[in-house]
């Protein structure tokens, strides 16, 4: 019981804080943060654990979003099934392109993913315009039926649902880090030859990591679709293709809470700064360069040891007090 608590407390604390912020921050902001952090964790996992940088994450986001959108626009009304359809769409897409992509070297991988994002963009904008309504996008907010228990058609209840999903996702990634699979991923990043000697296939490890990460990304896309009630090709626009990479770096590569911290910082920067300064990219760009040159630890990567010290020093003091008693 105590161990279970120890395992869970970080995640629960982080999302508890986020849930609490709901009372003094605008709801759309918090919702955006939750979804975007799910979007980012896949990218962070790929970059930090497997060493694959992907400039094409919007493609997988779009698979999830359009999967959900097609279901809700043409077939059904239940948003839960819609999300499930979106996730499945992302999973299938990842299974198809994964075996082709994970064979490539990391630089080619990044660029091929970017290319995929561009293909998906043009597919949704032009080629499949008949079904996707082109640039106007699919609007299905009114199609979403209200559901019992949690009516995720309403943004306040959607928030609770998104929170639960995010906690689930974080628990999954924390679990993956603990397993032999997590160790294999790190091994394939650091020394692929050695991993092969141990009898593991680099290809399989990478493929599995790729599928897990991009299915998570598709989940974020599906959540976006339900939350916004519409999907347009803008979601996979090449101009935004590096957002998740930027957020990953901002938060701290390969850390569990980096994507969350990075998302909060990035979204805040974008929403707040853009009100005062027209060209907020300038700051994002320079922060990015600065973080890379300063040791690429990111916000969470730099803060975590400091927090740990603070926390454990406090705990040590408690222990001393207890011993005295």
């Amino acid at each position: 019981m105590k161990n279970a608590f120890k395992w869970w407390w970080g995640i629960l604390l982080a999302f508890g804080l986020l849930a609490a912020s709901r009372f003094f921050l605008p709801l759309p902001f918090v919702n955006e943060v939750v979804i975007f952090s799910i979007y980012t964790i896949g990218c962070s996992f790929l970059l930090g654990r497997v060493g694959f940088i992907s400039f094409g994450q919007p493609a997988y986001l779009a698979f999830g979003a359009y999967g959900t959108a097609f279901y809700l626009f043409y077939f059904g009304t239940n948003p839960y099934i819609g999300i499930l359809v979106g996730v499945c769409a992302g999973f299938i897409a990842a299974c198809i392109v994964g075996p082709l992509f994970v064979r490539l070297r990391s630089d080619y991988f990044a660029l091929v993913n970017l290319a995929l994002a561009v293909i998906v963009f043009y597919m949704m904008q032009k080629v499949l315009a008949e079904y996707t309504k082109g640039d106007n996008g699919l609007w299905f907010l009114t199609n979403i039926a209200s559901t019992p228990v949690l009516n995720i058609g309403r943004s306040s209840e959607f928030f609770i649902f998104a929170m639960l999903v995010a906690i689930g996702v974080w628990a999954l990634y924390k679990y993956l880090d603990d397993t032999i699979f997590g160790a294999c991923c790190l091994a394939t990043k650091i020394n692929e030859g050695k991993l092969q000697f141990l009898g593991y296939s680099n290809f399989k490890v990478r493929l599995l990591a790729f599928i897990v990460a991009n299915t998570t990304t598709a989940l974020a896309g599906a959540l976006y679709a339900v939350y916004l009630g519409s999907v347009s090709p803008e979601i996979t626009s090449p101009a935004r293709s590096a957002d998740p990479v930027v957020v990953t770096i901002l938060g701290g590569v390969g850390t569990l809470f980096g994507p969350l911290v990075g998302t909060i910082a990035y979204t805040a920067l974008r929403d707040v700064l853009s009100k005062f300064i027209g060209n907020w990219e300038l700051f994002v760009g320079f922060i990015l360069v600065f973080i890379m040159l300063a040791g690429e630890k990111g916000l969470w990567g730099s803060a975590a040891p400091w927090l740990q010290k603070l926390f454990f020093r406090g705990k040590a003091a408690d222990d001393v007090a207890e011993a005295r008693r």
């Binding site: 940088i53 990219e281 990015l288």
Partner: peptide, 30 residues
């Protein structure tokens, strides 16, 4: 910038140069 990162792996230069790119776009907008 680049002088400091030649020794690093490819992803590193990709991310850093992307930062320079969007930072530079900000300057152009300004």
């Amino acid at each position: 910038i680049f002088r400091r990162i030649y020794e690093r792996e490819l992803t590193f230069s990709m991310i850093t140069s992307f930062g320079i790119l969007i930072g530079g776009i900000g300057v152009i907008k300004a």
